[in-house]
């Protein structure tokens, strides 16, 4: 499997507002080379919005973002052939079989030797024995795995997986992370969003978002050492507390004119 070595993602002052709500508040990141980046944070932190901005699915309010050096808004069909995206939703066709779904996306990516690529993608997610089942006949975990096969059949260099493990049992979650590491070892750059904070230890780096702000962008071990805790969930809780304290201090410094209805 050949792979580009110059995979990269970068953002500079990336900001996205929906009316009065700020979903992303000036994000600056620079990610170079194959790795798994965990996009972690509570619900509503801005994880999906960041992925959608990076992919050019929604325009940023201000700031820049690039994938492999190309601005998100200028990604042409050649650039997009290197991208894979697994949305948070089901994102497969319920009236098609598992194989027909994967074949459809293989066709869109004009995959050479399509049959064997589809076989490989199905084997990768462990669904060869159910390839002729319709999606409506599958369990939720199998549907997610079909969706992952649709994402990977085009052999993309940069892969965005939005909450891929949600609703899966712990064994399946663990298997999925094994698959992600396989892709990373093959040279892919994967951005995996999750609100299961404990899953972050599977990542090479973790981008921790809260209310559209980056609270930390570190290696998981560095986070554990910094906070002197054994569990990443504890490290994240500590980060949240520090952020709360900082916000409270800012509010106090602003004085009573800032107003409080507590």
């Amino acid at each position: 499997m050949s792979r580009a070595t110059d995979v990269s993602i970068s953002t500079s002052g990336l900001r996205k507002e929906f009316g009065k709500i700020t979903a992303l508040d000036g994000i600056d990141v620079d990610i170079q080379g194959s790795q798994i980046v965990g996009l972690v944070g509570p619900n509503g932190a801005g994880k999906t919005t960041m992925i959608r901005c990076l992919l050019g699915l929604t325009g940023a309010s201000s700031g820049d973002s690039e994938i492999n050096g190309t601005p998100s808004g200028d990604l042409d069909r050649t650039d997009r052939a290197d991208l894979g995206y697994m949305p948070q939703e089901e994102a497969v066709y319920r009236n098609l079989t598992v194989r027909e779904n994967v074949e459809f996306f293989a066709n869109l990516y004009r995959v050479p030797e399509r049959e064997s690529a589809v076989d490989q993608a199905l084997a990768f997610v462990g669904l060869r024995d159910r390839e002729h089942s319709r999606i409506g006949e599958l369990s939720g975990g199998m549907v997610r795995r079909t969706s992952l096969a649709c994402t990977l059949v085009g052999d993309p260099d940069v892969v965005f997986l939005d909450e891929p493990t949600v609703g899966l049992d712990p064994k399946l979650r663990s298997e999925m992370w094994d698959r992600f590491r396989d892709r990373r070892d093959d040279g892919s750059l994967l951005v995996v969003s999750t609100h299961y904070l404990g899953e972050a230890h599977n990542c090479d780096r973790v981008l921790f978002l809260r209310d559209g702000d980056v609270l930390a962008f570190e290696n998981p071990d560095t986070l554990l050492e910094r906070d002197d805790v054994e569990d990443l969930e504890d490290a994240f809780l500590q980060l949240l507390e520090e952020d709360d304290a900082a916000q409270a201090a800012d509010a106090a410094a602003a004085g009573p004119a800032g107003g409080s209805d507590a």
Binding site: R77, R80, A91, F105, L108
Partner: peptide
Amino acid sequence: RQTGTLERIRVSPVR
């Protein structure tokens, strides 16, 4: 739109 297939297609090389 609702199931996310349209977004997946928009990310693919299809015009």
